[in-house]
Design a protein around this nucleic acid. Structure first.
Lengths: 189, 189
DNA sequence: CCATTCGCTCAACACTTGTTGACTCACCTG
DNA sequence: CAGGTGAGTCAACAAGTGTTGAGCGAATGG
């Protein structure tokens, strides 16, 4: 066996990916503070020092692990705004990427995560606001209510496991939310 | 001065109250994990060991500090359900007691806090559900949507400081939410 | 007024944490 | 095949954590 099955660079990339996967999973499950570098290293079958060598710090590891986080994949257009918002429910209730879960889970206790989420939601609110009919009063506020409503439902479902939400199919939730969202989108407040 | 201005028992009660106040404030500001017994003790001008002596453990201190937490003060009645829900917005946006803030802030990272909040919200959902018109389809789910919506708005405002929500007066938020809530309370889904 | 209680502090333990530097050894290159 | 490079490990440090037991001194009660 003169040649190993994997080149050094390949192994390197693989270990780095394994570390990032373990980190993402643990950050999503326990949040930033309660996830230790040692736990990540163990989950990735690697020495803790290697995690440091690759990512420099726990913070940097977190940033790298959760990157490409987005709550609302696409920017909505004005025609079917409500339907587009409701369509993200499928995504939010169960299909949420681990990076997003990690970010959301840490947002109430880690200022850096809070800032990140706030900025992301602010951007999202701007998008929704712009998609509302121009005649609408208080478009930013309405947009914020759309977004925070979805945030609340997500938290209640994914993080708290509220019993009334637990068994409900996303379609039914969307169906009940639809009239409410339509009312919220009505220009005449 | 044969008699001190405060009896020993008075001093004891006062110190205990001071510790509880400091704990509540710090737990509300930083959450369970990031609040240290030493920090609480310092804020209360007391030795860390005394905190342990009085409360036994950090967990117990937390429980005692946040006690009497409730998100929805009164159980709603069926007539003016929506108005009662909207009326809690004043309370939630700024007037939230520190104990509640502490509990909410820790709910995503501390399983004990998560369970507490989940149970509290479940109970609240039951109450709202019972207050809905008997002809309503999926009353628990609708109730859950009411509660999670308010939760989302609260988080967006109090914890994330979303810009679109920051400057908005509670009345205006309530006014915009009213048609949406009315639609959600409509028996015909 | 003296013995006792008890509020309170001091110093320390045992543990976990993020982080670092020296080291080993397999792989790559000339 | 020899020398270097770099992936990966080992052991340790320094700081911070919850928690504990011995002790001090003032209020208390007989």
């Amino acid at each position: 066996m003169s040649t190993p099955r994997q080149s050094r660079a390949d192994r390197r990339r693989a270990t780095e990916a394994r570390i990032l996967d373990s980190a993402r999973e643990l950050f999503a499950e326990k949040g930033f503070d309660r996830t230790t570098i040692r736990a990540v290293a163990t989950a990735a079958s690697v020495d803790p020092a290697l995690v440091m060598q690759y990512f420099g710090s726990k913070r940097e590891l977190f940033s790298r692990a959760v990157q490409a986080f987005s709550v609302l994949p696409e920017t909505p257009d004005s025609d079917a705004l409500v339907e587009q918002l409701l369509a993200t429910l499928d995504f939010k209730l169960g299909g949420l990427p681990e990076g997003a879960v990690a970010m959301l889970r840490s947002m109430l206790t880690d200022p850096a995560a809070a800032e990140y989420v706030r900025d992301a939601l602010d951007r999202q609110i701007d998008g929704v606001s712009a998609a509302l009919s121009p005649a609408t009063e208080y478009p930013e506020l309405r947009a914020a209510l759309f977004v925070t409503t979805l945030l609340g439902v997500t938290i209640g479902h994914q993080f708290l496991g509220l019993t009334a939400l637990h068994g409900a199919p996303p379609d039914r939730i969307a169906a009940l939310l639809r009239p409410a969202f339509k009312a919220l989108a009505e220009p005449s407040g």
